[in-house]
Design a protein around this nucleic acid. Sequence first.
DNA 1: GTACGTGCAAAGGTTTTGCATTACA
DNA 2: TGTAATGCAAAACCTTTGCACGTAC
Lengths: 123, 123
Amino acid sequence: MGLKLTPQRMAILEYLEGNTEHPSAETVYRAVKQRFPTMSFATVYNTLERLRERGGLLELTIDPSRKRYDPNTDPHHHLICLKCKRIVDVKADFKLNVPEEQRKDFKVTGTHVEFYGVCPECG
Amino acid sequence: MGLKLTPQRMAILEYLEGNTEHPSAETVYRAVKQRFPTMSFATVYNTLERLRERGGLLELTIDPSRKRYDPNTDPHHHLICLKCKRIVDVKADFKLNVPEEQRKDFKVTGTHVEFYGVCPECG
DNA sequence: GTACGTGCAAAGGTTTTGCATTACA
DNA sequence: TGTAATGCAAAACCTTTGCACGTAC
């Protein structure tokens, strides 16, 4: 029922633990492949998806070219550099609501604020 | 300097004008292809990109599986149905700021709020 | 022994690109 | 006429899937 903790999964979990880089699947793959040369994309995607459905991981759609993953599942928001695609956490509780007259029976279950800009390095 | 107003582009512009469906490139392609059977994806992507760089169109990254386009460039936000991927405009001015202590020389140029939920049809 | 995970390769879907032709300004 | 757009096909990219093999309980 629970996730089987294979060595490959342990390596992925360790890589993600406390990671604030919001890595893409390929970034995860390259990182863990150093320790597991036989690591495949299938295992990375499989594990990320298992984690996501268990609520242990967020799939971010903030980067237009690829999915990014966030092991921080506490409610928070993001700031993205439009040049280098770096994503930075924004810890704030904004208490936002869809105006009643526009909600029209939509059941709102989550809120995410994206800030766009240019990071110090891309200046 | 300006966009050449070819018949194909006119058809794309007319399709987008006032459109609140947040169509994907393929949706635009299928719609305009009815009037221009020779319309190609290259022309659709080319035109959407030209419009975007001129600020006449927003590229939304809210749908994980494909880019969506929004001809409404007034500041607004979105509500997405996690089941059918329908996107609804949210007109509200939330006045959000990245907390000073987290901004760290990031130049913030835009803000976008995503609300997630389930629409009335998907129940 | 059975259910699940892994790894490889292939397939699927979206977006981009090269290039010859055509059309606009 | 010269520059830019079109259309087709192929390529590039990211992600998912099929399947044979391996591993854990």
